[in-house]
């Protein structure tokens, strides 16, 4: 087991009015628990407002939970910011437009002092080729790339620290369908090459079916169903899961 999420809840308070008087509580996550084995892929499925992105941010320690705990296996995850990475949904917003690709991908290497300065360019070139981009991309800026290419750059940056665990938060849903299919292949290849564990968040059941070993279905901050990928498509237990399947089948 590499990750255990135990009884995690998150309440956001929304302040209203001039004197911020009416504090309104929004329960984004409600007692979410699950475990994940190393080298497996967990799919998290849910619609907007289901709390799946909040969960991703809590796992990444970008947001702190109101209750509960997220525990990584200390034997496997030694340096958190190095070993655990995230890919966001929108590749247009997750790259700093003012930085060259070289600096974007080299940033984690510099922060964690992973590569001597002389070897930086070579390492970045190697990372770029891992995600299927050429060396010349280094000198360019994010605006010169398409959505799919930008997402590849994000992946190269995430891989720079040789992570063991990556959370993919709707990593392909803003892309064209043919690009989505390519990216999905890339994720599966990298998982083997780099011996990764994934959490793959998506609203698209077909995508999850392809990549995940087990699936969690979320609605309104709760887990409504959790089981093996096969089982969820052949014998869904929950009504909401059935509704999702039905919508996807058309």
């Amino acid at each position: 087991m590499i990750l255990e999420v135990k009884d995690v809840s998150k309440v956001f308070t929304v302040e209203r009015g001039f004197f911020k008087q009416k504090a309104q509580a929004v329960r984004a996550l409600d007692a979410v628990s699950f475990r994940l084995e190393q080298f497996r892929t967990l799919g998290i499925v849910g619609e907007s407002g289901s709390g799946k992105t909040t969960l991703a941010k809590i796992i990444l320690r970008l947001v702190s939970p109101t209750q509960g705990a997220v525990a990584f296996d200390p034997a496997r995850i030694t340096d958190f910011r190095k070993d655990v990475q995230i890919i966001f949904q929108n590749p247009y917003n997750s790259l700093n437009a003012k930085m060259r690709i070289l600096d974007i991908i080299a940033e984690p290497l510099r922060i964690h002092r992973l590569v001597p300065r002389k070897g930086l360019k070579e390492k970045v070139a190697a990372l770029l080729s891992m995600v299927g981009l050429d060396r010349a991309s280094m000198a360019r800026y994010p605006a010169e790339f398409s959505g799919g290419q930008r997402q590849r750059i994000c992946i190269a940056r995430a891989l720079a620290t040789q992570p063991k665990f990556i959370v993919l938060d709707e990593p392909i849903s803003s892309l064209d369908l043919t690009i989505q299919a390519q990216m999905l292949d890339l994720f599966m290849r990298l998982k083997e090459e780099c011996r990764l564990t994934y959490i793959f968040i998506s609203h698209n059941l077909a995508v999850v079916k392809h990549i995940a070993d087990s699936v969690i279905v979320m609605r309104d901050g709760r887990i409504v169903e959790a089981c093996d990928t096969q089982a969820i498509f052949t014998s869904p237990q929950n009504d909401y899961t059935r509704l999702l399947l039905e919508a996807a089948r058309g």
Partner: peptide, 12 residues
């Protein structure tokens, strides 16, 4: 913005 969160996620 997401690129700031992304920077935080790589340990900046």
């Amino acid at each position: 913005r997401e690129f700031v969160q992304a920077a935080r996620a790589i340990g900046a």
